[in-house]
Design a protein around this nucleic acid. Structure first.
Lengths: 249, 249
DNA sequence: TATTGACTCTTACGTTACGTAAGACTTTAA
DNA sequence: TTAAAGTCTTACGTAACGTAAGAGTCAATA
């Protein structure tokens, strides 16, 4: 009982060397070995391998995978549910890419116009595929995620949008002594949300995290409070309220 | 006019280093450089970059990408069409993986049984993602594709199916003096087709290619003709007829 | 029973596609 | 004019294997 390396390799479509490698780094070592020292993979080994391959498909580095699956709190079922979410996300990105491709084909035919930004929709998934969803459950906090997004805006984009941003900042500054959950405040913060989504895609969660950053990270605090003292705190609250109320829908 | 490295990097979601690298290996060198030697990317450069990223998404190594796009016969539009096909294929695989995942979740709950083979459906895309579709247009012929599939059957699988295979071989050997397109012959060859699809997925095209191999490659010819002289030729014809008639449907 | 062919093992260097860091120059905003 | 941010080249580091060599195992065959 137990399968030899090549059988496993054939079954799952990977190389023998890969299995050796996984053994070498302690990611997946077979339960048993034969008399002659041949690796014998059990059914449990195979199921673990399946999990590993799911993680890999989603872009996790092997080191991280090892950390995750050897963590005593690792829950197999939970991981599978996460895999599903992430795979669905990946499919969305793929669909976006296909849409981009179709547009591009039309574009080469001269039928439509395409902005440079549009040409790369679907690729531009926020940096690492895994870093995105993974933080939610494994490691770190989701906060510096939004931090990064800000850092990735290009100078030209920043210029293009700088004006609009200033306008909204001023509008919010004028409201900052009201409560953050009035209709006016929420309408203004919604503008802010839409503006941000023009340059990167912000989930409501990320939006809320960003708001948190406004009070946690003084680089933001300083910047924002130039438009009026206490604006950062006000925005942070308004953003949280906006995100929470919309997430209930 | 022209974008700096970081602008491009931000736009498409890759690193500056990556762009440097592509320049180093001659995959994508900017049209212009500034006085100070800064790289300046034109719109055409961006479009080429888009193509490169499509190829990359599909698993092509950079070296191969370079070959392809510097080939004088390279046709941009044709490439885009190919990209679309391949992306659709990729989505299919992803869907298969998601289905596998759903099954696995049920399996962990004990609701259903799952064979080892089922556990890896979607991963087991036939070896290289790119080698598959790519051969159709770029390089080589599709023939040795089926060759590989045969080579990848594991010993145990071969044993399991060896008996059934022999039965079909014998059945076909008895028919080999009839015409390959009679109902009997076609029914037998259909059994053969279904049997093969138990162990790997054969498109009708690949099936036909395999049949061709039976007469082209003497390793096959010898083996098959053990069951009766001329069987390989007979099977080859029958397989071609079967594939052609079913492809018209 | 000897041999052959297909697997297996370990060891180890090679490769791809960048990451990361260092040191120096440029450009822009303050 | 000085700081901050961006850019350059050079170069070593890294992840995830690929590939090759030399040697032992195992089953089937001559």
């Amino acid at each position: 009982m137990g399968m030899f390396v090549k059988e496993v390799a054939n079954l799952v479509g990977i190389s023998v060397r890969t299995l050796h490698h996984y053994d070498d780094i302690g990611l997946l070592s077979p339960d048993q070995t034969s008399e002659a020292g041949y690796r014998l993979y059990s059914n449990e080994n195979l199921e673990m391998l399946q999990q590993i391959l799911f993680f890999k498909e989603l872009g996790f580095p092997l080191k991280k995978i090892k950390e995750i699956i050897t963590d005593p709190t690792f829950n197999k079922r939970e991981a599978l549910e996460l895999h599903r979410e992430m795979l669905l996300d990946k499919r969305k990105r793929l669909d976006t890419m296909i849409a981009t491709l179709n547009k591009t084909i039309k574009h080469t035919k001269g039928e439509i116009f395409m902005s440079n930004k549009e040409k790369f929709e679907g690729f531009n998934f926020n940096s690492n595929p895994f870093e995105e969803e993974a933080r939610k459950r494994y490691g770190d906090q989701a906060i510096d995620e939004s931090n990064k997004k800000i850092g990735r805006m290009s100078p030209t984009e920043q210029k293009e949008l700088g004006e609009s941003m200033n306008n909204i900042y001023r509008k919010l500054a004028n409201l900052r002594h009201e409560s953050p959950d009035t209709k006016k405040s929420q309408a203004a913060i919604e503008e802010w949300y839409h503006l941000l989504n023009k340059m990167g895609s912000y989930s409501l969660e990320a939006f809320k995290g960003l708001g948190q950053l406004y009070v946690d990270d003084e680089r933001f605090t300083k910047n924002i409070d130039q438009f009026g003292e206490g604006l950062s705190i006000f925005m942070s609250k308004a953003m949280a309220f906006y995100a929470d109320s919309r997430m209930k829908e």
